[in-house]
Design a protein around this nucleic acid. Structure first.
Lengths: 253, 253
DNA sequence: CTGTAATGCGTAGACCATACGCAGAACTAG
DNA sequence: CTAGTTCTGCGTATGGTCTACGCATTACAG
């Protein structure tokens, strides 16, 4: 009701406010033994160790030596906790590229940085995204990506679309490779044996007359050779950057 | 144990077998009142009506006038049901493109077809994907995509990567637009007012000195004009296809 | 010292998936 | 026609989830 230091417009969710450090604790009552960053850290620790499915309110509370319901004094809901976990899980953005590098080298570095994070924190891919980025680190990553395009003559909307395109690709690629790794672990197969086994299964299921193109790909044996996942990543990224480069060149005139 | 008509290799999951119609019912016992396709249809109906979160075993059973546990006679687990729901939800693939059309027109048509499906069945985006495509319709979509590249001189692995690239983009784009629509509905805002409100929120949070590139984009007002989501989709798709075209041309020599 | 406000936590409710076992139905063998 | 077999459908029960609500305790302000 009262006008504070910040004429807050349309009621920011409490979880976002705490992420930006905008919450002032009233100087009353007992000092809180738990803190929002502490809870988020504990949740991230659980996810790192046992995956996102292991992150329950009771498990996080146990990690902190607290009772389950104690957490709800600090965060509004589990969804809020997940939002903050994503922010903390991504960590700080990779920072701006060297001034001499062009936009392409910069975006490549940026994309690889995100891929590296997602490779070590595959649970980030399993968090259901509920909206556009709004937490500090997320916007920091966005900022660093946009900066790579500073020297181009793309329109503002085009820059945004390009960043969305690249980050979408990175997430997608990371999801696929994580699935392969997870599937091979679940099936007890060596990682290199996963795709060949998949190819054999599909080959047994499909009728070559009804799936001729797929059958050709399978018999070509591409799935049998286990190529470096890094090459796969680079291939797709280069295709996307080629497409962006065509646009950048057109706008350069 | 016994060698049947099909020397099945590494034990196909039962859910996959029923999707391919490989399950023969023993001619004993009472005729089943429930069937796997019937259960899947009911689950899809629930998801269409009330979203994926409403799909619980009891809700699906209620839809069929059956008891909850009756479902488990036909499907092994809820995950199996989800797998079959995805297959049914995608529906038949769009079919091969006209022979005269080039690969680019074909892939565009293919991508738009997937986007149309995902627009009407946003719950498909919320099903956690657990592995590479292995159900009939899914492989049908893959087949149709690969056929678009028949006339190119890409290597088999490259064709596969290209298809993965495009379908990944479509899913990503559909996820983002669905989030905006869902968010505006949840917040009670008009769909056209969603992105401007988001822009205002971010502008209030960030410090222009620390987020200069982001601040420039926000003040440019790109978020205020509500552009056709179709244009956004086409923009990204054209960038990707431009990148692929560069590769196709290089391989054509 | 007293009042007040915020914290931590216990209880309990409403869901969820699913393991297990039993009654009965439908078909086959004699 | 009868008996046996086998599969279906369902009821019960277990252990898990998130979270609404209320109570006792603590620590600061006056």
């Amino acid at each position: 009701m009262a006008a504070k230091k910040d004429d807050s417009g349309p009621a920011l969710p409490p979880a976002i406010e705490s992420a930006w450090g905008l919450r002032e604790r009233p100087p009353k009552g007992p000092r809180p033994g738990l803190s929002v960053p502490g809870i988020v850290d504990a949740a991230v620790r659980v996810a790192d160790a046992d995956g996102l499915a292991a992150v329950s309110m009771s498990r996080v509370a146990k990690e902190l030596g607290a009772a389950t319901m104690a957490l709800y004094r600090h965060i509004g809901s589990k969804d809020d906790l997940l939002l903050l976990m994503v922010d903390a899980g991504y960590g700080p953005p990779p920072g701006p590229a060297a001034p001499g590098d062009g936009w392409r080298a910069g975006l490549t570095r940026w994309a690889r940085a995100e891929r590296d994070v997602l490779r070590h924190r595959t649970w980030l891919l399993h968090v259901p995204i509920t909206g556009p980025p709004i937490t500090p680190q997320q916007l920091g990553w966005l900022e660093d990506g946009l900066r790579c395009l500073d020297d181009t003559h793309l329109a503002a909307g085009e820059k945004m679309s390009v960043i969305l395109l690249v980050t979408g690709y990175v997430r997608n690629e990371a999801t696929l490779t994580a699935q392969i790794a997870e599937g091979s672990r679940a099936a007890g197969v060596k990682p290199g044996e996963m795709m060949p086994a998949y190819g054999r299964t599909v080959a047994r299921l499909i009728d070559p007359a009804r799936f001729p193109a797929l059958h050709r790909v399978l018999t070509s044996g591409v799935l049998n050779q286990d190529d470096d996942p890094d090459d796969e990543f680079t291939f797709g990224l280069d295709r996307i950057l080629d497409g962006i480069e065509a646009l950048v060149d057109r706008r350069a005139s």
